[in-house]
Write a protein that binds this DNA or RNA. Structure first.
Length: 279
DNA sequence: CGCCAGGGTCTCG
DNA sequence: CGAGACCATGGC
């Protein structure tokens, strides 16, 4: 896997595109974070990953440096929006995330901005996570740990009504009601159906988990941003969730999840850049 | 300060 | 099945 270290990656955009939420940038512009319980520090030079701390194999796998970006890019739709997103977000990668951590953070993500998902993630880590030597932040707590916590304690981390969902899901997993790893053999529709049995996991969050933790690169989470984009692609014609999902799958191609990620990040960076300067 | 955010769930037609 | 209400919280 470490022989992929020459593969291109847009590190900053990858880490800021709403996939993972706990990485932070150091004064020297490198990025520090945890891959499960392993501290890592990486930077980017000429679109290549420079490793300053952490096991190269683990890092290369986490950042999915083996994903065939050329093939993925070639499969992008040819419409103006997809191509604009492709140009502005070049070399973003869909990372391979730990399943529970991904499931938990996206349960907290509903009706929340990226910045607040981050603050909730950091609060949960600080309150419940194991400290890690060589890391400023703690590991994401196991579902056993969260199962033994309380809704009130999770609310203290800013989760609001999502606290009960995360607690219930942690308890289901702790009691063996579902095994995230054994789901990996299921095909997309069944996997999605299995995941949506968890409290706080609907179709959108399930698709995030499929894309980010099960490497289903054709899975398309439809949030408010992607919904608006699909609407525009359809000439303003809205539809049911099922219709839009079918449209996205057909329109965005075999790597629809990748296309979706580029569209999402591009739309958000546009919005940020055109926000009026404060007086 | 008011709007909106990587939505899920329950109810009612 | 599909539309609507409600759910807490904080960034911008």
């Amino acid at each position: 896997m470490s022989n992929f270290l020459s593969a291109p990656i847009n590190l900053a955009a990858t880490l800021q595109s709403g996939q993972v939420f706990h990485w932070h940038q150091e004064p020297d512009a490198s990025w520090s974070g945890l891959i499960d319980k392993m501290p890592a520090r990486v930077s980017e030079k000429d679109r290549r990953l420079i490793i300053q701390k952490g096991d190269p194999e683990t890092i290369a796998k986490h950042f999915a440096l083996d994903h065939p970006l050329e093939k993925i890019v070639a499969a992008f739709p040819k419409d103006a929006m997809s191509q604009a997103a492709l140009r502005s977000c070049q070399d973003i990668r869909i990372m391979r995330q730990p399943r529970w951590e991904c499931t938990a953070t996206f349960i907290t993500s509903s009706m929340k901005q990226v910045a607040h998902i981050r603050s909730m993630s950091l609060a949960i880590r600080e309150r419940f996570g194991q400290s890690v030597e060589g890391s400023k932040i703690s590991a994401y707590p196991s579902f056993e740990t969260l199962a033994a916590s309380s809704a009130a304690a999770l609310r203290d981390c800013g989760l609001g009504y999502r606290a009960e969902n995360l607690l219930k899901t942690a308890r289901i997993l702790a009691e063996g009601g579902l095994d995230l790893d054994s789901l990996a053999k299921q095909k997309n529709p069944l996997l999605r159906q299995s995941l949506t049995k968890l409290p706080g996991v609907g179709v959108k969050v399930a698709n995030c988990i499929l894309l980010f933790a099960y490497e289903r690169l054709d899975a398309v989470p439809i949030d408010t941003w992607i919904h608006r984009i699909l609407l525009a692609m359809r000439g303003g014609r809205d539809g049911t969730a099922t219709e839009l999902a079918r449209y996205a799958r057909r329109r965005l191609g075999p790597y629809a999840g990748y296309v979706q990620q580029y569209l999402f990040h591009h739309a958000r960076s546009l919005k940020k850049s055109i926000s009026p300067p404060s007086p």
